[in-house]
Amino acid sequence: MAAEPMLRVRGLTKHFPVRGGLFLRTTGHVHAVDDVSFDLDVGETVGLVGESGCGKSTVGKTLLRLHEPTAGEVLFEGRDITTMGRRELRQLRRDIQIILQDPFESLNARHTVGKILEEPFVIHRIGTTQERRRWAGELLERVGLSPAAASRFPHEFSGGQRQRIGIARAIALRPKLIVCDEAVSALDVSIQSQIINLLLDLQREMHLALIFIAHDLAVVKHVSDRIAVMYLGEVVETATAKDIYASPRHPYTQALISAIPLPDPTADRDRIVLVGDVPSPIDPPSGCRFHTRCRHAREDCRQRKPTLDTVRDGASVACHYWRGLG
C-alpha cells in the first residue's frame, strides 16, 4: 500500500445558507464547494484555479475550519480536521498557516512588525522574550527585509513588503502546510515575481506543502506540481502543471487558457470566447454545471452529471465527451 499523503481531502462540501424574508428564514443555499477531493504530499504544491465564485477560496478556508464544512473529510497526517476539538485545532494551526491577498487586513495596524512576528511564539508559549525578539529579526532577514523593520508599523511598508511580513509570520512556527489564497494577485508584476521566488525558495528549504489558490493560471502553473481547475464549486479537471497547459481536456480549461492574453503580439491562436456569465451558485445548472456556456454541450449534458474520472495517473476530467474534443 502506498504511504498516506500528508493531506487527504475527500468529498469536501460547503453550502452557505441564503436568508431572506421577514424572519430571515433560509431560502436557499449557495453551493460554494461541492464534493471536492484531492491529496497533497510533503513539499508538494497543489494549485486551485478558477474564476470568481468557483469556490477555490472557500476550499482553502474550509480546510482550515475557518468555515465549518457541510460534508466531507480532511485528513491531515491521518487525523480528521473536520471533527477536531478546540485544543487539537490550536495545535493544528502550528502546522497549517494561511497567507491572504492583502496582508494589511490581517496585520494588526497598531502593533510593530516585531510584535506581530513575536505573537505566534507568545500564543504557543515558545521561547523567552529575548529569544522571540531574535527569532523575529531572523524571520525578517529570511524574507528579505532588514531586521530594523521590526520597530516599524505595517502602514510604513509597500504591498510587496507587507506580503513579505505576512509570509514571515506564516513560517514563524515552521508549519508543514501553507494555504496561499490569492497571495500574489494584488502585486505588481516586478514584485509578484520576487514573492513567487521567495515562496519557491522557502518551500524547498522547509519542505513545505502549499495549496496555491489564484485566478491567474500562468501564476498557478508556475508554482504548482499539480493543478485542480474549479468551476461553480466543483473540480472539473486535475492534471500536472505541465500537462494542464500542454493538453487541457475539459472544455472549460481549454476556454480558460485560450482567454489569457499573451504578452506576445505575434502570437496567433484561435480564441474560444465563452458566451455569457457564470451562472448563480445558488441555483447551479442541472447536469454538467458548465453546459450553459459550453460550445460542445449536447442534450444529455443538461441532464446527466459527469463524474470526475481518472484518465491516467494523476489526471482526471469531469466531462462526458472529453475524448471527442481533441
Partner: peptide, 14 residues
C-alpha cells in the same frame, strides 16, 4: 519577469 504559460513549473522567475 512575467510568468508565462510555456515556462517550466517551479523554476525561479527573473
Amino acid at each position: 519577469s512575467i510568468p508565462r504559460l510555456e515556462d517550466t513549473p517551479k523554476t525561479l522567475l527573473t
